[in-house]
């Protein structure tokens, strides 16, 4: 079923703030096996010019994807989430995410397409800190594979 084109450009309300914890950053860095001290050692991060430990580049996806979930599960959009796969992912950083950030995400549907029976959804998530400053933008392309003919 083709998705409704009228959703293109729709912006969802900002999410409640997510507070970035230093132990969560450590846990993520350990999970990807990355010993870079900028993720765990405040002094090392400061030596690089950061006010506190920073998060690995893809850390913020957990936050933006949760926000995108509100879009994906919008019953009016009618996307079959059980058939969704991740197509593309991109981030553009104003600065790295760091411990202590309180981040909100504002999601916008950038494009809705149908190709060979697949529904393709492009979602942009703008991430801002507590001061309202832009931190990072995440673009997520989701593909809902065509349902098999019964």
């Amino acid at each position: 079923m083709a998705l409704d084109q009228s959703f293109v450009g729709r912006t969802y309300p900002p999410t409640a703030p997510y507070e970035v914890g230093r132990e969560k950053i450590r846990e993520f860095a350990e999970a990807v096996g990355d010993p870079n001290p900028a993720y765990t050692d405040t002094e090392a991060a400061k030596a690089l010019g950061h006010p506190d430990v920073i998060a690995p580049p893809t850390f913020v996806f957990a936050i933006t994807f949760k926000a995108a979930g509100e879009v994906v599960q919008d019953p009016q959009l009618g996307l079959d989430y059980s058939r969704v796969v991740h197509g593309d992912q991109k981030f553009a950083y104003v600065r790295p995410v760091r411990a202590g950030d309180r981040l909100t995400v504002t999601s916008t549907i950038e494009a809705v397409k149908s190709m060979a029976g697949n529904d393709i959804l492009d979602i942009r998530g703008e991430v801002h800190d507590a001061a309202g400053e832009h931190v990072v933008t995440a673009w997520t392309k989701l593909v809902a594979r065509a349902a098999e003919e019964a």
Binding site: P57, T58, D88, Q89, K90, A92, Y93
Partner: peptide, 30 residues
Amino acid sequence: HGMFTMAEAIRVVTDWTGDPGAVVEYGVRF
């Protein structure tokens, strides 16, 4: 997880630069 692969791939860049904050933009297709 595709995002696991994406996290590992950028380590080639962050190990090279030392500072992960040097990454301005990063995108992949799975």
